[in-house]
């Protein structure tokens, strides 16, 4: 009975967090946000060189055979730092391709980060899961502009692969709320996508993994915002004392921490259930995504309020985290959709 990370996971978390903190000191959060980052982010080569892209991919294909829990720990660190990089989606793509009939040179290039893969899954207006995919434009494709390849959800629930430059493939940039993870809309001509030969249920596993990783990212971001609000309350003075001494604000901060802290164990459990293929893993993924992303948005809004006027400026970085978790929340449909799925997957 060990409901905790193992030593390697703890160490990886510390390594990634230190790397990101170090990089963050060099470039202001807001400047990075204005630049748009992602594939061009200076963080990306450093994370890639840690070998993290192959984390989840099978060992006989050049991956590390590690757990989703490990990737979730990395996602939490990225959310905490507010770093926009392709790492998480690239790692999932590497896992899918390495689990498919894709050529080994392609798998190697994806794990090495030499060929960028974007995940093109959702469809307008409200089709998020494999059984709902009907073909047509793919919306909210994060990193579309940087991608060499797209991993595409196909009508019928399969996954396919298409080159960015192929005939009939076009990307329209979308002005994105979260500029650190900019999106595009992917248009595809019929028949241009090569269907991947995959094991049963891989597309479902992919979407469930994303739900959990979005929650992990949102948890990290929310933790950061609570930390920022607490620090501000200790240093900002009004009426001759730190505002954190006033019970009104103190209780708001306590409530924020009370909402956010329990999410850690919930995210870990969802990732672990996915890793062990527990029967209720899909339901747990939906429940966790809805709860954690909603709590994160609520808490970061409260953190901004606790900062007063400064919190409402573009200059102060809190809005970067707010926009990040709003994107985490909306990415795969949002809490209404996920809670409806929880109900559908229950004996309710």
């Amino acid at each position: 009975m060990q409901f905790d990370l193992n030593d390697e996971q703890k160490q990886l978390f510390n390594t990634v967090q230190a790397l990101l903190a170090d990089a963050e000191a060099g470039q202001g959060m807001v400047a990075a946000f204005d630049d748009g980052g992602y594939g061009a982010s200076p963080l990306w080569p450093r994370l890639r060189d840690l070998g993290l892209v192959g984390l989840l991919a099978p060992g006989d294909r050049g991956g590390l055979d590690d757990e989703l829990l490990t990737l979730a720990v990395v996602a939490e660190a990225l959310g905490f730092a507010g770093a926009g990089t392709p790492l998480i989606h690239q790692a999932l793509a590497a896992w899918v391709l390495a689990s498919s009939d894709a050529d080994q040179p392609l798998v190697d290039a994806v794990i090495a980060g030499e060929r960028a893969v974007a995940l093109a899954l959702g469809e307008a207006p409200d089709r998020w899961r494999p059984e709902q995919w009907a073909g047509g434009d793919k919306i909210n494709v994060i990193g579309a502009a940087d991608a060499d390849l797209f991993l595409v959800g196909l009508a019928g629930g399969d996954l396919g692969l298409v080159e960015a430059g192929a005939d009939g493939v076009s990307v329209a940039a979308v002005s994105s709320l979260d500029r650190l993870r900019p999106m595009g809309t992917l248009s595809l001509a019929d028949g241009g996508v090569k269907r991947l030969n995959l094991g049963e249920g891989m597309a479902d596993r992919l979407v469930d993994a994303l739900l959990i990783l979005d929650a992990a990212d949102a948890f990290g971001a929310a933790r950061r915002a609570v930390d920022a609000a607490v620090e501000y309350a200790k240093t900002r003075e009004q009426f001759g004392r730190p505002i954190g001494a006033f019970q009104g604000l103190k209780h708001q901060l306590a409530n924020m921490a009370l909402d956010v802290e329990p999410c850690r164990a919930m995210v870990w459990h969802a990732a672990h259930a996915w890793d062990r293929r527990m029967a209720d893993a899909p339901r747990t993924a939906a429940l966790t995504n809805a709860h954690v992303t909603e709590v994160a948005v609520k808490s970061i809004r409260a953190a901004i309020e606790a900062h007063g006027g400064m919190g409402f400026t573009w200059e102060h970085p809190l809005h970067v985290w707010l926009k990040r978790v709003m994107a985490d929340l909306a990415h795969l449909g949002g809490p209404i959709v996920q809670r409806s799925r929880v109900g559908a997957l229950s004996a309710w």
């Binding site: 409901f3 329990p262 919930m266 809805a290 809670r339 109900g343």
Partner: peptide, 15 residues
């Protein structure tokens, strides 16, 4: 489902 989110987060936190 919203309540269950809090219940499960609390339960796993206890573990």
């Amino acid at each position: 489902a919203a309540i269950e989110g809090y219940v499960k987060a609390h339960l796993y936190s206890s573990y």
